[in-house]
């Protein structure tokens, strides 16, 4: 018997603390497989955010830093400038990256830091119990928008990829999802593109992954994947917004 699917050695043996069905585990695996395939795991340094993935460092067998809420791109800047040959990535949720860390992500992108940012957008704060995020859909009920997000007083969902893509410096900005196997394969390709660009010192790469939060959406994981396709993707369309080196065509 030949193994056709097994766990990459870049992932640790620790069981994750994530809720049943949570997409974090999928995205962790795609990153870990990419680091293994590009043969850069021994010089990879991850930066864990604050939020559900605060313990991401427990799930990878690579060097890790745990940053303050929203500051991961600044921390990544300090690490990468000190060790330019390492492979540095941040892993951040939508509260971390699109609310409290707005300044850090915009300016790291604008400086063209040669790092990779993986942005998990599930439209809600998970760790703190389901509060409204900058990416929460209009009308969506959360702990802090119990009557639904009202665009008139709470604003509308922020499309971070589109904002980052307006900047001159970023090399690669793309939005993917992992709600089906086909989309997961595209997400893997995008993550691999991003890390390849970094390995080749070609600049800032940003992969937004539209994800589910079954617990705080109040849905079964399998229903959440369908809900994502019907409700999240019309607001957060999949696609590549910037690819200055044409890596997707290569």
């Amino acid at each position: 018997m030949k193994q056709v699917f097994g766990k990459t050695k870049v992932l640790s043996a620790n069981p994750t603390h994530y809720c049943p069905g949570c997409d974090h585990g999928i995205v962790h695996r795609l990153i870990a497989e990419t680091l293994e395939e590009l043969e850069v795991a021994d010089k990879a340094i991850g930066i864990a955010p604050v939020g559900c993935s605060v313990f991401a460092y427990d799930y990878f067998n690579i060097d890790f830093n745990q940053a303050a809420h929203g500051r991961a791109p600044a921390v990544a800047t300090g690490i990468k400038r000190t060790r330019p040959d390492s492979i540095v990535f941040t892993y951040q949720g939508d509260g971390d990256l699109a609310a409290i860390g707005t300044a850090e992500i915009i300016h790291a992108a604008n400086r063209g830091e040669n790092i990779t940012v993986v942005f998990i957008n599930n439209g809600i704060y998970g760790m703190t119990g389901g509060q409204m995020a900058p990416t929460t859909l209009v009308g969506m009920k959360t702990q802090t928008s119990p009557y639904g997000r009202d665009a008139a007083t709470m604003g509308s969902p922020i499309r971070v990829s589109e904002i980052i893509a307006t900047l001159e410096s970023p090399a690669y900005v793309t939005r993917v999802t992992v709600n089906t196997i086909a989309n997961q394969m595209k997400a893997k390709k995008a993550i691999k593109n991003a890390f390849t660009l970094q390995k080749e010192k070609k600049g800032f790469s940003f992969v937004e992954v539209v994800c589910i939060c079954p617990t705080n959406w109040g849905k079964k994981p399998t229903d959440a994947h369908k809900w994502l396709a019907e409700n999240m993707l019309p607001v957060f369309p999949l696609g590549t917004f910037k690819d200055i080196h044409g890596i997707e065509k290569a």
Partner: peptide, 19 residues
């Protein structure tokens, strides 16, 4: 086909194939 394994957020499944 390994669709189950790739769908698993906890990487709990391993798949083997007869050679």
């Amino acid at each position: 086909c390994a669709i189950c394994a790739k769908s698993c957020p906890d990487v709990a499944i391993q798949i083997y194939k007869e050679e």
